[in-house]
Design a protein around this nucleic acid. Structure first.
Lengths: 149, 149
DNA sequence: ACTGAAACTCAGGGTAG
DNA sequence: CTACCCTGAGTTTCAGT
């Protein structure tokens, strides 16, 4: 992970369909050297995945919400984590410090779908004491791009 | 946006470096027809971006935190939104319902960097009354992949 | 949907520090 | 020995039909 690698990661985070030739020109490497770096970064695990970022509206997921979830003491945290990972509506689930146990980010179609998630997916889980729902009114920024410094 | 398009979006969200030939075989289209769909989805805005997802650890960003931010009534919300959008440490900033005004997601190197963000970036902003920091202890799921139903 | 031209990828092998 | 570069064969893309 030298400076050239982090330069490459910066470009790939903006657009991973850049060609090895363009990338090489941008960071001062030959096409094949850039290609070597590309493969190494993908193989080493520094690049976790290559994804298209889809507009939520294009798939009808216009409602963004965060949930706080409180679990009973000594309840099955791993089971809860697995249930969140398996739920398609759930984009993120984090175990957090503070008054609540989990913070869950989800994208659904509308409030009816949110209600359905709470009633059908969350409420049946063992250990769930209570939840608190925060609705997102407006998003100023939402990205997966990490600074490369 | 017919069924084939949403099938294509499902594959592209998993791996956008799939070739038009493979994609066509997967969804029952010729290579060139798949290619046409690919270009249309990118041009129409259904695909917002094509990004490499980088491991936070590879860039030394091992601390994930959420902040609640409270602003004074009638303060400059747009200015705050712009400041968050411009801050590299900030991955997300959402205007939310509930007792707080904003929910901010950030990834930094360590608690010292978090402190620096609070003191140097957040505190100087006009209208910020108080903040509450939630540290992420463990992440069960974190993805940008939307379900295609 | 097909086709052909241009562009791109990706090993293999060579070279310099 | 590692990182980089060159080259050529095989794919892939992308217009035009």
């Amino acid at each position: 992970m030298d400076k050239i690698d982090s330069d490459i990661l910066r470009f790939l985070q903006q657009d991973n369909r850049i060609t090895a030739a363009e990338l090489g020109a941008a960071v001062g490497l030959s096409t094949s050297a850039a290609n070597d770096r590309l493969r190494r970064l993908n193989a080493s695990g520094a690049v976790l995945a290559n994804r298209a970022i889809v507009a939520p509206a294009a798939l009808g997921r216009t409602l963004l919400a965060f949930l706080f979830v409180d679990l009973e003491p000594r309840s099955d945290e791993a089971g809860f984590a697995a249930a969140m990972a398996a739920a398609p509506d759930v984009l993120e689930a984090h175990h957090i410090t503070g008054p609540h146990n989990w913070l869950v980010k989800l994208r659904v179609a509308d409030t009816a779908a949110l209600q359905r998630f709470l009633a059908s997916t969350l409420k049946p889980l063992a250990g769930v004491i209570r939840t608190e729902t925060l609705i997102v009114l407006d998003t100023a920024k939402e990205t997966s791009v990490l600074p490369t410094d």
